[in-house]
Design a protein around this nucleic acid. Structure first.
Length: 578
RNA sequence: CGGGCUGUGGCGCAGUUUGGUUAGCGCGCUGCGUUCGGGACGCAGAGGUCCCCGGUUCAAAUCCGGGCAGCCCGACCA
């Protein structure tokens, strides 16, 4: 039975809910459609939703699970402001990212200056907790809050899955050093795993990129789902799991060997207006020239700002290691050997460009490449004769069947929703924010070693709905349902004895502390059945004239459809028992 | 930010191509009656700036121009 939350038991004749027979046209995914049809949520603007009483109760259930596990893990709940003075963000340097894709924050002008509608809370928590913690004796400490966050999402979608205003449970750990921080990280990580288990979600922790938050080690908690916007790589052999953005593939650096002596020389072709892989394949119009026979040549800077030409087979998406960036148009001006749209590896080393290739390029060829001359490509290009590779690595996005970097087994690609993300921050924020230091045991000063942890509560509501429904409607897990029991009276208006029996049962359930949604409305049976199925409480208790004549009620499980009769005067425990 | 589609009572839609009485239909809502163990039926009713602004015209939901909003695809994503 779920923890007690918010509102008292409820008669449906009074509940603020209206079920819809049809879903609004803007609802694309099932969870969104059902949550709107069931009167759980309503849209106010794009990516901005109201939670009606039923929706809020589910939200509170999820929060209850999160609170109990974080509390158990020794975390302390607090509540930070959603409105942040912009100066804090200038201190961390992240204000420069506002308006960009990595940190699309919203700001508001007030009397006190510019405020940021908090998209995340590293800055605020560092100065807030830092001001209270002055000594190593007070460490470690982990705090958390459940609060609204604001993000100016480029494209909100799928109901609560991607919104501009969202509810998040975010935690922050403060430790004396990296080792202690890693222990705190593990504690929250384990708590997260227990939370997902209690939410009946199959979440996998995966290695990920850290994005705008920063830090070295981080994990995303991915819930496999058809409506997911992310993909992660999973190895059935050893358990390796990583976001495709961070995943690498295994296999040794290739040794392609010498090119064949008798191969014809490379041939140059005039290919005007065909900069893309598909364009060039169309040009050759030859079954022997497939995308995989082309070299995708990307001009990039590596983490040390060196000029690098990155080679990937044409049928693969490139994956840039973090810290690397693609050359922009203005960068090409300084690198005349790289002709945008017609780049090839031949002779690049002579121009001071390092040639780095994905292991998938480890065969002689023949390859089709750019000719480093506008509107021209080369065919019959051979590795070892026409170009050489300085360094091999994993630079292509991993796909199903690629070898695992740990054990070599074939990995699989899984579509998933990112439900949480945890980061080992180190001193990224404590180094620069006021109050980010404490006094050490030997009287010196050191910066906190921090971790941060975020879980999307409102997103989880959608994820749970997505994973727990059928064609008739929602089917909440017992711990998350707004009410564990849905009591339905059939025809109370025409059968006063039915109404009286249902009322009596309602009061008995309440007296036993059971939170019950009571459909006392005088509407036709079909409407009541349909609404009960749509709303999805785990247990439906039915009082009707038929059963009443024999002194029984009917108990039906929403998830399994199992139904059995129970004497009306049976004890509450046996009425509810499966 | 690029491409596409769509804006008509609370919800789902028709009508727009070819301008012309009072803008329709289903669901929902109100009242009365009948019915009612899987979204009942009849009768009567309420509810609309046809997204907004401007233009063309005797006449605009409909044609033209400009905005705005929503959704989808892509890019991006904590």
């Amino acid at each position: 039975m779920g923890r007690k939350v918010g509102s008292p038991p409820m008669r449906m004749s009074r509940l603020l809910v209206r079920t819809l027979r049809e879903a609004p046209a803007d609802a694309e995914v099932v969870s969104h459609q059902l949550l709107v049809r069931g009167g759980y949520i309503r849209r106010l603007a794009s990516g901005v939703y109201s939670f009606l009483p039923l929706g809020l109760r589910v939200l509170h259930r999820i929060e209850g699970v999160i609170r109990s596990e974080l509390d158990r893990a020794g975390c302390q709940e607090l509540l930070l402001p959603a409105l942040h003075p912009v100066e804090l963000w200038e201190q961390s340097g992240r204000a420069a990212l506002f308006g960009s894709d990595v940190l699309p924050a919203l700001t508001v002008e007030g009397r006190g200056g510019t405020f940021v509608l908090g998209p995340t809370h590293e800055e605020v928590v560092t100065v807030t907790v830092g001001a209270e913690v002055e000594s190593y004796r007070q460490l470690p400490v982990t705090v958390y809050q459940i609060q609204v966050k604001f993000r100016d999402e480029a494209r909100p979608r799928f109901g609560l899955l991607r919104t501009r205003e969202l509810i998040m449970a975010d935690a922050y750990s403060f430790d004396a050093d990296k080792t202690a921080m890693q222990a705190s990280y593990r504690t929250v990580y384990d708590a997260y795993l227990r939370i997902f288990e209690r939410l009946s979600l199959d979440a996998s922790p995966v290695e990920a990129e850290s994005g705008a938050i920063g830090g070295d080690v981080n994990h995303e908690f991915m819930v496999p789902s058809a409506v997911g916007e992310d993909h992660f790589v999973r190895c059935p052999g050893c358990g390796y799991a990583a976001n495709v953005e961070a995943a690498t593939r295994g296999g040794d650096a290739p040794a392609p060997g010498p090119p064949p002596d008798d191969a014809p020389p490379a041939v140059e072709h005039h290919t005007p207006g065909r900069p893309g892989i598909e364009d060039v394949v169309d040009f050759f119009d030859d079954p022997a020239v497939r995308p995989g026979d082309l070299l995708k040549s990307l001009a990039v800077f590596d983490e040390d700002q060196r000029e690098v030409l990155l080679l990937v087979a044409g049928d693969r998406e490139a994956r840039l290691p973090s810290g690397w960036r693609l050359m922009e148009d203005e960068d090409f001006v300084d690198h005349r050997s790289l002709v945008k749209g017609y780049i090839g590896p031949t002779g690049q080393q002579a121009h001071g460009v390092l040639v780095v290739a994905d292991v998938g390029v480890g065969r002689p060829g023949p390859w089709v490449t750019g000719a480093n001359r506008a509107d021209h490509h080369l065919s019959g290009v051979l590795l070892g004769r026409d170009f050489t590779v300085d360094r091999w690595g994993s630079f292509a996005q991993v796909v199903t069947g690629d070898p695992c970097p740990r054990c070599g087994s074939a990995v699989e690609l899984v579509r998933a929703v990112e439900a949480a993300h945890t980061f080992q921050l180190g001193t990224k924020y404590s180094d620069v924010m006021a109050g980010g230091t404490y006094v050490t045991e030997d009287g010196g000063e050191a910066a906190f070693s921090m971790g941060c942890y975020g879980m999307g509560v409102s997103r989880l509501l959608s994820v749970v709905a997505e994973e727990h429904h059928d064609e008739r409607g929602l089917a909440w897990p017992e711990d998350l349902a707004p009410y564990p029991v849905h009591l339905v009276s059939l025809g109370p208006g025409r059968a006063p004895e039915v109404a009286a029996a249902a009322d009596a049962l309602y009061h008995r359930l309440m007296a036993s502390g059971v939170e019950v949604l009571y459909d006392d409305r005088d509407v036709s049976p079909g409407v009541k059945f349909a609404d009960a199925d749509l709303l999805g409480m785990p247990v439906r208790l039915l009082v009707g004239a038929k059963g009443l004549a024999r002194g029984v009620l009917e108990r039906r499980s929403r998830a399994t459809g199992e139904e059995r009769e129970v004497p009306l005067d049976a004890p509450v425990a046996s009425v509810l028992a499966p």
